[in-house]
Amino acid sequence: SASLEDVKTAVLGLLVILQTKLYTLPASHATRVYEMLVSHIQLHYKHSYTLPIASSIRLQAFDFLLLLRADSLHRLGLPNKDGVVRFSPYCVCDYMEPERGSEKKTSGPLSPPTGPPGPAPAGPAVRLGSVPYSLLFRVLLQCLKQESDWKVLKLVLGRLPESLRYKVLIFTSPCSVDQLCSALCSMLSGPKTLERLRGAPEGF
């Protein structure tokens, strides 16, 4: 439990870093931090981490990651405290083949985003970082199938509809809506759902 406290501190630090690096160059920093966060949550489900502190780590990670939004130009952003989304000039939600690297070039400044813009690109060529939603999407499927803490599952179920409104997140990387529907149906009809959940409301 003591070591998990250190892990929790590290994860919180990564969330803060991602919130900053999403809007700064090099964009590969945001890509790497995002991948680290998603990989860490995957390990929770792989090794069945069920301690309360592990659940709190997942809760905080999902609470942040499910706020990711994308505009029509595929640029990622996060809402501010007033709910207004600021889109990044440097990070996009497109999935890119590994051989192309985590970044790609664009020939010049991008068109203005639909929300308040981030800082304008400084040079004639900007390297865009790929932060594909499919990585998070796979972890969300694991959550629906394996999550043991009701608070975490409730958060994910509550945030998913709003995330799905931003269709560009889903359609720019390999996210299977069929698998999502299947996971939701299995969660509702499967007898093991109630068996594994802690803290579920009576009558769920």
Rank of each mutant, 00 (worst) to 15 (best):
A2P: 05
V7E: 00
K8A: 11
A10N: 00
L15W: 05
L15K: 13
L15R: 14
I17V: 09
L22N: 02
Y23P: 03
L25P: 15
L25W: 15
P26V: 02
A27K: 04
A30M: 05
A30C: 07
V33E: 00
E35N: 10
E35A: 12
S39E: 12
I41T: 03
I41Q: 00
H44T: 00
Y45N: 00
K46S: 12
H47M: 14
H47W: 08
S48W: 07
Y49D: 02
S55G: 12
I57N: 00
L67V: 08
L67K: 14
S72M: 12
N80M: 09
K81R: 12
V85N: 07
S88H: 01
Y90R: 04
Y90F: 15
C91V: 13
V92R: 08
C93L: 06
Y95F: 12
M96H: 09
E97P: 13
E97K: 10
E99H: 13
G101S: 14
G101C: 14
S102D: 14
E103W: 09
G108Y: 14
T114W: 14
R127S: 13
V131N: 04
S134D: 06
R138L: 05
V139T: 06
V139K: 01
L141F: 03
L144W: 00
K145H: 15
D149Y: 04
W150I: 02
V152R: 01
L153R: 00
K154L: 04
V156H: 00
L157C: 04
L157R: 00
L157P: 00
R159Q: 06
R159L: 06
L160Q: 01
L164P: 00
R165N: 09
K167T: 05
V168P: 07
L169C: 06
F171N: 14
S173W: 02
L180T: 01
C181V: 11
S182H: 14
A183H: 07
L184E: 00
C185R: 03
C185W: 04
S186I: 07
M187G: 02
M187P: 01
M187R: 04
L188D: 02
S189L: 14
S189D: 10
G190N: 14
T193G: 07
T193M: 09
L194I: 11
E195H: 09
R196A: 06
R196Y: 05
R196W: 04
R196S: 07
L197M: 13
G199A: 08
E202C: 09
